[in-house]
């Protein structure tokens, strides 16, 4: 059996890639993908520990997170669409009209 440390390392790596994307990219679509990566990093953790402890709860949670992520993407895509219609771009730096 693969020891849990490997899973945790994988999960941390995926999370950091997602975080890097959020911090560096300007395109809203990249943002969405990065957030997905971070969510899935959490999923990896949940399933790894579920396997390790032999407990189904973690896997159930992971299923819920996947469903949630799907919903989130639907809303995110919608927001991006409106963003594009209003500003003619999907760059997050241009939507600054609500700022002080």
């Amino acid at each position: 059996m693969v020891p849990p440390e490997y899973y945790l390392l994988l999960s941390a790596a995926v999370f950091c890639i997602g975080l890097f994307g959020v911090l560096t990219r300007k395109n809203a679509l990249y943002f969405l993908m990065s957030v997905e990566l971070m969510l899935n990093a959490a999923n990896i953790n949940l399933i790894a520990f579920s396997l390790f402890w032999g407990n189904m709860t973690g896997q159930t949670f992971a299923l819920f997170v996947i469903a949630l992520a799907a919903a989130e993407v639907a809303i995110g895509i919608g927001i991006i669409l409106v963003l594009y219609r209003n500003f003619g771009t999907v760059s997050v730096t241009d939507a600054t009209t609500m700022r002080w």
Binding site: V22, L23, K26, F31, V92, T93, W100
Partner: peptide, 17 residues
């Protein structure tokens, strides 16, 4: 304090991190 609120999501995420 309002200078913190740049309107850039990236900055908020950086602050969170």
């Amino acid at each position: 304090m309002r200078k913190l609120q740049t309107g850039l999501v990236t900055n908020y995420a950086a602050l969170l991190t």
